[in-house]
């Protein structure tokens, strides 16, 4: 499977978008926390994502051509939104470094980055939902991409800005638990839908059953385990750092495995596979 550039691109970009979405969430809270590191981290992630995405292209020197079909192609839109997101983050970091005390401008940047991140994840999902691989065409892609954004973004925000977060972490964790449980609850529906689909869809189910069942099981075990560890780390009086790090590692590993599976089990509808 040669899709590692896309695995890294989608995960890193979604993580950056997730960081921005969580920053918006905390901004809406009373006495919103001031995350000094969240925007630079999101900028770093999205920059890495954009650079790595070039390795997927056969002719990366002409990558700019990818913006030529904005009226029809979701891939064009994805690149536009990703580039805009990266630029907005760079401007936000610059303003942050310039130590501007304008609170309204800061708030405006936070919301703008959140909206751009949201659009990036949406366009990314639409790219795959407009392919001819039933496992990707499903609404599950949209759910999976947003869930990944929230989980990875949450983990990264916790790791980079734990001190500023203080006691607000529990609220975020509870939302994450709901997101992950929702994802798991929708999984059987997705698999049954594929099973009842065309030959390509059934080939995807066969791949999951025959070749990737263990990875899928391990993926969900890591994600669920990670969530439980993260909650446990908050229950004790003092935040348990060891528990928190283990939770973060498990959640990141789970999401990487999930994305690997996403690409591995995509089978195209084609001649003889209908």
């Amino acid at each position: 499977m040669g899709e590692w550039p896309l695995i890294i691109f989608t995960l890193a970009m979604q993580a950056a978008a997730g960081v921005c979405l969580w920053t918006v969430y905390f901004e809406t809270k009373k006495n919103g926390a001031d995350f000094r590191l969240s925007t630079p981290v999101a900028l770093g992630l999205s920059a890495v994502a954009m650079i790595v995405s070039l390795f997927h292209l056969g002719t990366p020197v002409k990558a700019i051509n990818s913006l030529s079909n904005l009226s029809n192609s979701w891939l064009s839109r994805e690149i536009l939104f990703s580039g805009t997101f990266l630029t907005l983050l760079a401007v936000s970091v610059f303003l942050q470094r310039a130590n501007l005390k304008n609170e309204r401008l800061k708030k405006f940047c936070t919301y703008l980055n959140g909206i751009a991140g949201c659009l990036v994840v949406f366009s990314m999902a639409m790219v795959y939902m407009n392919s001819i691989k039933p496992a990707w065409e499903s609404w599950n892609t949209l759910v999976d991409f947003y869930a990944t954004a929230l989980v990875l973004g949450g983990v990264i925000l916790v790791m980079s800005s734990r001190k500023e977060m203080g006691d607000k972490l529990l609220g975020m964790n509870l939302i994450l638990v709901v997101v992950v449980l929702l994802q798991i609850a929708l999984l059987p529906n997705f698999l049954v839908g594929l099973g009842a689909g065309n030959a390509a869809a059934q080939a995807s189910v066969k791949l999951i059953h025959d070749d990737y069942g263990a990875i899928m099981f391990l993926r969900w075990l890591l994600v669920l385990g990670g969530m439980i560890l993260m909650l446990l780390s908050q229950v004790r009086k003092k935040q348990d750092m060891g528990c928190l790090y283990m939770a973060a590692a498990a959640l990141v590993a789970g999401q990487v495995m999930g994305r690997y599976l996403f690409y591995a089990v995509g089978v195209a509808t084609g001649i003889g596979l209908v």
Partner: peptide, 16 residues
């Protein structure tokens, strides 16, 4: 000349 080798066309054609 315009193609960048993104392979999205390969993922888009039901006739391969």
């Amino acid at each position: 000349e315009r193609c960048i080798g993104c392979q999205y066309c390969v993922w888009s054609c039901p006739y391969g």
